[in-house]
Amino acid sequence: MYTLVTVADVVEIHPRDFHKPSKRAIEDWINTKYADKVIHKVGLCVGFHSLISASEGLIGHGTGIVNVNVDFRLIVFRPFKGEIIRGTISSSNESGIHMSMGFFEDIVAPAALLFGPSQTELEEGGSRTWVWKADENDFYFDRTEKCLMRVEQETWTDLSPQMKKLDEDFDMEARDAAGLRSCPYRLTVSMALTGLGPDLWWLGEQAEAAEEAAKAPENVEETNEVEMAA
Rank of each mutant, 00 (worst) to 15 (best):
I85A: 02
D169L: 08
E83T: 15
E12R: 12
E136V: 09
D9Q: 05
M99L: 11
G57C: 04
V66P: 01
T188P: 03
D138Y: 13
G82F: 04
I97M: 01
F18A: 13
L4Y: 15
N224Y: 15
S160E: 06
G96H: 03
E212K: 12
M163N: 10
H14G: 11
K133Q: 15
F141P: 00
A112H: 13
E145Y: 04
R128C: 06
I30S: 02
V42I: 10
A134C: 12
I30P: 00
Q153G: 05
E83H: 12
Y2I: 08
I30C: 04
V66A: 11
N93Y: 05
T63K: 07
H19L: 09
G60K: 15
R24Q: 14
H98G: 05
C183T: 15
M228I: 13
W202V: 06
D199E: 15
T63H: 03
E211N: 13
F115W: 04
D167C: 10
G96R: 01
E56K: 15
E56M: 10
A8M: 12
G197Y: 02
E168C: 07
E218K: 15
N219E: 12
Q119K: 15
W29A: 13
N93H: 03
L148R: 10
G195R: 03
E27G: 01
A178P: 00
S160T: 14
N69C: 11
G204W: 02
A216H: 08
L187E: 01
V220I: 14
G87P: 03
I26N: 01
G126W: 06
A207Y: 02
I89H: 01
E221Y: 05
D138L: 12
L51T: 00
T223Q: 12
V38S: 02
L180Q: 09
A111R: 04
S190H: 08
H49Y: 13
L200P: 01
R175W: 14
I59L: 14
P184H: 06
E27H: 08
G179T: 07
P110D: 11
D176S: 11
V11P: 02
V220D: 09
N69V: 10
N31K: 07
C183H: 11
K133L: 11
S91P: 08
T188D: 03
D176F: 07
L196K: 00
L114D: 02
A209N: 13
M101A: 06
H40I: 10
G204M: 08
N224V: 12
A112P: 02
L51G: 00
V68T: 08
R143G: 11
A230S: 15
T32N: 13
D169K: 10
L122V: 12
Q206I: 08
N93G: 04
E227A: 11
L159T: 06
I107H: 00
I59K: 05
A112D: 14
G125E: 04
Y185C: 03
L148H: 11
T6E: 13
L122D: 08
Y34C: 05
R24A: 11
F115D: 02
T63E: 07
M172D: 15
F141L: 03
Y34T: 06
H19N: 14
V38F: 04
W29L: 06
E168P: 11
A214N: 08
T88K: 14
V11K: 00
A8V: 10
